[in-house]
Amino acid sequence: MMNRSAACIVGSLVAAAFMNQSLATLSFANGELLGGEILNIAGDVDYGAYLAGECVVCHRAGSEIPTLYNYDKTYFVDAMVRFQQGLRKNTTMRDIALQLGDEEIAALATYFERAAE
């Protein structure tokens, strides 16, 4: 069975391969990968850095709430869309995700993928 890291890597490859097709969803070994259209948005890193201030107040390395630094962009977007759609259930994250538009998710995903903690 594929673990999350492996799934992320495969997810990235799949997403990269299909990036230009503007697919809303992409399929890969671990199920559907959501938010393909958000990956087509060029995320504003500065905006992402600002928005990230809200995330790092809970997300941290070595904790049950995982660090988001160096986080796979494809998996980040997928996770946020799943929270928005209620496919992932954490009430805090669902509330946060519903406050974010596509531009903001793209900005965060771009920032976290590039940034080191």
Partner: peptide, 8 residues
């Protein structure tokens, strides 16, 4: 989660 938040 609150314990993790405190550390963060």
């Amino acid at each position: 989660a609150s314990v993790d938040w405190y550390a963060a």
